[in-house]
Design a binder for these strands. Structure first.
Length: 276
DNA sequence: TCCCAGGCAAGGC
DNA sequence: GCCTTGCATGGG
């Protein structure tokens, strides 16, 4: 695969480990839409349009190609990750099915809010709620709404969040937004040991072990985490035995897969969810 | 209709 | 500490 960065776009040719559908529809981000053959991706205050030029050729139109080169994790060699995971035979179907998956490097603040909303929720509804929150509290630009800053979300009430359709998670959001605005520093978690960073995140309302792991993986660059949701729990029980405690599943999976845990989990999630 | 969704908080033990 | 229960709301 080759990635070429120009002033206004990125060109991906021979895209063996880049598939927009797989990346976007593997439940790691919620602000995208499919529009006559292209994907529109929104993150923070940025927008990108992924144009399909052929079977394995894409052009990503955007104002900051450097930003999206990092966002799409183009500085990581996924062929190596896939070959390492291929050592685990049970992984082969999932790797084959989702070869084009990548872990997006997302803004941590946005990731935190989105994954608080994700708890015990479904992806279609999460997308709607996030969109409503952006439309109500974000900044309108020439390409739609930005994700609101902590200051912008600071004025949102429980009623506002309920109106956005987040249900009982509304009060969690209000509390966590307050904590962030009162100085809880998400960026310092980036260089902290993973377990310590997780312990800090769990102090926030609406953040338990699973949401924390998603924030660590998608927003803070910690790969040694294995978020266990309902789908991954099913996979675990199929391959590793009748465990019920998801925390314990996650712990054992991290022991087995180490720094490959995050991406391993992503392949399995996508494979399981797309195949009932 | 009824079950489920990228789980968490609170209460009981 | 671990286990159980209640939870808003809409998708399929």
């Amino acid at each position: 695969m080759k990635v070429e960065i120009t002033q206004n776009y990125l060109d991906i040719s021979d895209a063996t480990t880049f598939d927009p559908k797989q990346i976007l529809e593997s439940g790691q981000m919620f602000r995208f839409r499919h529009e006559n053959g292209s994907y529109i991706v929104k993150t923070g205050d940025q927008t990108a349009k992924i144009e399909c030029l052929g079977a394995k050729n894409f052009r990503i139109h955007c104002k900051s190609p450097k930003y999206f080169a990092n966002y799409f994790d183009f500085y990581t060699d996924y062929d190596i990750l896939i070959s390492q995971l291929s050592a685990f035979p049970f992984m082969l179907p999932a790797l084959n099915f989702g070869q084009g998956i990548r872990i997006l490097k997302q803004p941590v603040w946005e990731t935190l809010i989105c994954f608080i909303i994700s708890a015990n929720n479904n992806i279609a509804r999460i997308k709607k709620s996030v969109e409503a929150i952006c439309a109500r509290f974000g900044t309108r630009g020439d390409q739609g709404f930005s994700f609101p800053t902590p200051t912008q979300l600071g004025v949102a009430t429980v009623e506002d969040f309920v109106a956005a359709g987040v249900g009982y998670r509304a009060s969690y959001l209000v509390k966590t937004v307050q904590d962030i605005n009162n100085g809880f520093d998400l960026e310092t978690l980036r260089t902290m040991p993973t377990d310590q960073a997780r312990a800090e995140l769990i102090k926030l309302a609406g953040v338990g072990p699973k949401v924390a792991d998603c924030v660590l993986l998608f927003g803070l660059g910690h790969t040694e985490v294995f978020p266990v949701d309902t789908w991954i729990a099913k996979v675990y029980q199929e391959h590793f035995g009748a465990e019920k405690n998801r925390r314990l599943m996650s712990k054992k999976l991290v022991e087995r897969f180490g720094k490959l845990s995050g991406i391993c989990q992503q392949y399995l999630f996508y494979y399981k969810r797309e195949n009932k």
